[in-house]
Design a binder for these strands. Structure first.
Length: 493
RNA sequence: GCUCCCGUAGUGUAGUCCGGUCAAUCAUUCCAGCCUUUCGAGCUGGCCACCCGGGUUCAAAUCCCGGCGGGAGCACCA
């Protein structure tokens, strides 16, 4: 359209300007040599789908450029710690294939934070405030300093010491980092750096009662770890601005910050408190309940970490909020597992059907349709031509159907007749359904909505423990247990 | 209310900085057909998008202005 015009006007502009097309994640800015990055989970429970994004993105970049990736437990709120998370989070990261070079625990570093706090105090960039929190906040919102803000260092230090010796109760004194009371964004004005909390800490007990808050601890640690790039959700944008004050006061070099948008994940329970409650009182069986969006639930269902990785890499790190798509994740996973997933018959909600007029029948079904070399599953019916089919596969009226890899039958007035084994029938559009023999095993499939599909599975499924299989016409599932009951966990269709 | 960020198909994404090969990429979904003894896989085709309105320009997804819409933050949580 405009092209023709341009050809007349300025053909030289049409000369090639090959735009390189980069797939996957964009390059990081300001990379000099190796990168050092971190993930900073709060140890309040195992990792879920949302966390996997941060973990995988960090890992991808560290692997691309070379460098180090830290895992830092942000356990500076003693009330919100689940001690088991110190173990489960590294397990989850390992499953994800995320390489952690070093683990840091903030609760082991309190002395370091105290040192920096003292330094800020001495520089006049912090103060110890004993205002009531509401009062202090009101002053801040109207851009006014509280009476403690500009008091002399000696008084600040005296109050600082008293924060440790028990003179103050929680909320009666805190160390505040100064920023700029005139800052147009009220969220950026003076923020609390350390507070008093007497809740026993799962790791340090009552040894410390002065706890750094995230903005102080994060700034200090990010600097001391000499991070080059920090990935964080955009909900931390204002925290980044606050932390930059600390960097500026102390003359530290800032890492490159990259903020990414929020992910909304439909149909997934991710809330740690709700999950914990659901485990105690039902309806969840544990952190790996297939209803949950935890990584251990996905693992249990047979979702491969590589599928998650591809998903997050293709999603990228834009600042826009996004919607998570289970369908896309399942599609990636199907691609990974289909080749290795042998086929079996499982009949949900079974109905017994006796085939009349049948010779001795033997079902011969390929183990995997794309892999004839894997052989056939032979299912002998012997002299009792009785099978189970799913109730939902029962024809409404009289009809012919093909029992897959077995024979053709005709439903007539409630009876089922053998009508040969010719595949020509299929050309007439006859439906194909699956079946299992009478000597099948009871089996259940745990569904992601919390229901349990009960049915019968062909005997051979009992030999697939731990494997990812496809129950034909039903779903891909992971065979979790085979005795006393075959138990599968639903992955996806 | 205040501060900041962001708007490309159902979803995610490329292109936006440096306007022209964009009649807009790729993936996934959805629809149709083919193939297949699975509702899986494969193959082919199709639907569907530059938030809106002005402006600048020979030319705007791209630059400017104004709207509209969405999100985040305004915690002694992270």
């Amino acid at each position: 359209m405009q092209r023709r015009l341009l050809e007349e006007l300025a053909p030289e502009l049409l000369v090639k300007e090959v735009k390189t097309r980069e797939m996957g994640l964009p390059e990081l800015k300001n990379v000099m040599g190796e990168v050092r990055m971190r993930m900073a989970p709060n140890p309040s429970g195992p990792l879920h789908l949302g966390h996997s994004r941060m973990a995988i993105l960090n890992d991808e970049y560290v692997k691309r450029y070379g460098g180090l990736c830290y895992n830092r437990f942000e356990d500076t709120d003693p009330a919100r710690i689940d001690p088991t998370a110190y173990d489960t989070i590294p397990e989850d990261l390992e499953w994800l294939g995320v390489k952690i070079h070093k683990t840091i625990v903030q609760s082991e570093r309190f002395e370091t934070y105290y040192g920096i706090a003292m330094k800020l105090l001495e520089m006049g960039k912090a103060y110890v405030c004993t205002c009531k929190p509401d009062h202090w906040r009101d002053l801040k919102n109207s851009r006014r300093p509280c009476e403690h803000r500009e008091q002399p260092l000696s008084e600040q230090k005296a109050r600082w010491d008293k924060m440790f010796d028990g003179s103050f109760k929680p909320e009666e004194a805190s160390l505040i980092v100064k920023t700029d009371l005139e800052h147009p964004n009220p969220a950026i004005r003076d923020f609390v750096g350390l507070r008093i909390d007497d809740t026993p800490h799962p790791r340090t007990g009552t040894r410390y009662r002065v706890y750094p808050l995230m903005n102080l601890a994060v700034a200090v640690d990010d600097h001391l770890l000499d991070l080059t790039h920090v990935l964080r959700g955009k909900d931390h944008l204002n925290n980044t601005y606050r932390q930059e004050y600390i960097y500026n006061y102390l003359g530290w070099k800032k890492p490159e910050y990259i903020h990414y948008g929020r992910v909304s994940i439909e149909d997934a329970q991710l809330s740690k408190s709700k999950i914990a409650k659901g485990i105690k009182q039902g309806p969840y069986s544990g952190w790996d309940d297939p209803q949950l969006g935890t990584l251990r639930a996905l693992r249990r269902r047979g979702i491969r970490p590589e599928a998650l990785r591809r998903y997050w890499v293709e999603t990228g790190i834009k600042e826009v909020d996004i919607e998570f798509s289970w369908k896309t994740l399942y599609s990636f996973n199907r691609e990974l597992i289909d080749d290795g997933a042998d086929r079996y018959f499982f009949v949900a909600d079974p109905v017994e059907v006796r085939i009349e007029g049948a010779p001795e029948l033997v079902g011969r079904a390929p183990v995997h349709p794309e892999h004839p070399e894997r052989g056939l599953r032979e299912i002998m019916l012997g002299r009792d031509p009785t099978v189970y089919i799913s109730r939902e596969d029962l024809p409404e009226g009289n009809a012919r159907v093909r029992l897959k890899d077995l024979c053709n039958v005709e439903f007539v007035d409630g009876k089922v007749r053998y009508i040969g084994n010719s595949l020509d029938l299929l050309k007439e559009g006859v439906r194909i359904i699956h079946w299992v023999p009478k000597h099948s095993f009871d089996a259940v499939v745990l569904m992601t909505d919390g229901t349990v599909k009960k049915g019968k599975a062909e005997p051979l499924l009992a030999s697939a423990k731990g494997k990812m299989v496809q129950l034909e016409r039903f779903a891909f599932v992971r065979v979790e247990e085979v005795s006393p009951l075959i138990t599968c966990v639903f992955a996806h269709r």
